[in-house]
Simulated assay, not measured.
Amino acid sequence: MIIDFHTHIFPPQLIAERQKYLADPCFRLLYSSPKARLAAADELISEMDAAGVDKAVIQNIGWTSHELCVRTNDYLLEAAARYPGRLIPFVAVQPLAGNQAINEIKRCAAAGARGIGELRPDVQGFDLGDDRVIKPFVGALVENSLVLLLHADEPVGHAYPGKGSLTPGVLYPFIAANPDLKLALAHWGGGLPFYALMPEVGAALKNTWFDSAATPYLYRPEVYERAADLVGETRILFGSDWPLLGQRRCLDELKTLNLSTQTLKAVLGGNAAALLGLAND
């Protein structure tokens, strides 16, 4: 089974009225260029069918507005209900909204959400070290058995649209302070796996997974092999970042590597199935 852990879809009305949403900092950061593609659920299903992808996690983005979180969450939940067994919703919240965010977490969990993401604290304006905001937020995630997916940024290397300040130095204290939270870090955690040889870091990452979204834009393909050596094959989640990148391109790159059948099966879907509590057919 192949599970793409990192895709993005948007409501058709939002796509049609794109310019209206550029006032939101996160949406503007990612989609101010007309070349940045937006897509809806039907297009994703067509892509999955063509690429041989069985299931996809549909991610929201880090909206600053609580109201926009709710509005777009409704679409992701509806899309997942329309394509049962194919689409797995990860919804968005604005933790600064306090009790409204907690209630939205509970509402979405009851409606079938499996996680929260892709959040961007640096863009949404909340501090991962602010206990007043983070403790109730993380508590609600743990209580509702939800995975948190955070965007992650490399502290070195080339600039690109969307690159921010959520680097390993910011992420690690949050991970260490919240050992019961199941956390997935996008884009290889900004390189955090390469610190796992430090004993204290490796120990803290026991509940942390790393997705491979946008790998062709960030790393050479052998990053899969090196990360498997450093954090273990069970901690890697295949992700394309569709529609930024085509699923087939990402799958073809992965399958050219010298990975064992066991590792390839784990990365392509087994690890995601275990993390999300899905049957791994």
Rank of each mutant, 00 (worst) to 15 (best):
R226G: 10
W242A: 01
H66M: 12
L128F: 07
K163E: 06
D24C: 15
D131P: 13
K35P: 05
V93K: 02
F5H: 00
A79E: 03
D127Y: 06
A110L: 07
H6P: 03
E225N: 14
L230R: 13
I88F: 03
D24A: 15
A176T: 11
L166M: 14
V147T: 09
R220F: 10
D180A: 13
L251A: 08
K55H: 09
A39V: 08
D211T: 03
W209G: 08
A113R: 00
F10K: 07
V91Q: 00
T64W: 05
A80F: 06
A56T: 07
L30A: 12
G125Q: 13
H151T: 05
Q59C: 14
D131N: 14
L278C: 08
A186N: 03
L254I: 13
L230F: 11
K163C: 09
R28S: 15
R107G: 01
E118P: 04
I2S: 01
D281G: 15
R120G: 08
D49G: 12
Y83K: 05
P168W: 00
D74L: 11
A56L: 07
R235Q: 10
D42T: 12
D24P: 14
G270M: 02
V223H: 09
L259Y: 08
Y195C: 05
A152E: 00
P136K: 14
Q94Y: 07
A113L: 01
L146I: 09
A80S: 14
T7L: 07
G62Y: 02
A176I: 04
P161I: 06
H158T: 00
G269E: 01
R248P: 05
T7I: 04
P216T: 02
S165C: 09
N178Y: 07
N207A: 12
I61S: 07
P173Q: 06
A272L: 03
L77I: 15
D131W: 15
R226S: 11
N258D: 11
G117Y: 01
G115T: 02
W209L: 08
A51I: 06
T167A: 06
N144G: 09
W242E: 00
N73P: 05
W63G: 03
N103V: 11
V231H: 02
Y172F: 10
V201S: 05
G62A: 12
Y31Q: 10
F238N: 01
L245N: 11
A176L: 11
T215V: 13
H187T: 05
A186H: 04
Q19A: 15
V57M: 06
A111I: 01
R37C: 08
R82F: 08
M1C: 13
E143P: 14
G190M: 03
D229Y: 11
L276I: 12
G117S: 02
